[in-house]
Amino acid sequence: MTDKSPVSVADTQTLTSLGKAFRSTLSRDLLIAFKRRNDILNPVMFFLIVVSLFPLGVSPDPQQLSVIAAGVIWVSALLASMLSLDNLFRADYEDGSLEQLLLSPQPLYFMVLAKNISHWLVSGLPVVLLSPVLAYMLYLPSEAYGTLFISLLIGTPVLSLFGSIGVALTVGLGSRGLILAVIVLPLTTPVLIVGAKAVADVSFGLPVGTHFAILGAMLALALTIAPLASAAALKISVN
């Protein structure tokens, strides 16, 4: 027997600190994503493919493409984020890790936040990093590159956070189909509007400080409420 001392009621002082538990959850999810490289590759590939469809479907004319480039890239990023969401809690739900997470003596807000951050690093960040290449392919005016990049950098975490609520609500459902998109997409419209407008405005030479401020405010709001809502939703889903 490895066990040494008689059992007594746990002493909360010796619990793992929040910081360590947070890092442990974050690194676990990153490790899982790393072991299943498709989870990283698929959203980026999807993003690339969807964006490539527009020149084929609309027109390869540089003038037309440069007008719609910002919107196309933003909508594609939104869809890529949506499709990658299922990885967020599904496997954990099915194998019971989610129950263990809910039963840990750690604040659920931070545990869900750790999972969200991991998910964004794996599925959102690659999309952001790839966006300048696609912007070039769609003839986005070069002065808008920085704005596109920054708006996606602030905006895609908001998409992940809001999406997380939708996944948490639907993770227990047998047949999910498109319900996740139906729930989440309307919630994400403000981010799309502000993000795409920032890129469009900077192409016209307009200042975009307000746009970034609004996106930042949305990110702050999402960081505050989304993990709480996700945590509450997860409790309902395992019930």
């Binding site: 009621v9 746990a10 002493d11 909360t12 619990l15 793992t16 360590k20 538990a21 442990s24 959850t25 676990r28 490790l31 899982i32 072991k35 299943r36 496997a91 954990d92 099915e94 194998d95 019971g96 890790s97 129950e99 263990q100 997470l101 039963l103 840990s104 003596p105 750690q106």
Partner: peptide, 30 residues
């Protein structure tokens, strides 16, 4: 929760991770 250990029908073991990695995480939560 600090005094509770629950093992349910679903094992709480990720199939992708190794046993050691699984226990590292579920241990570190407590």
């Amino acid at each position: 929760l600090a005094s509770l250990l629950y093992i349910g029908h679903r094992s709480g073991v990720s199939r992708i991770l190794s046993p050691r990695e699984n226990l590292r995480w579920s241990g570190a939560l407590h």
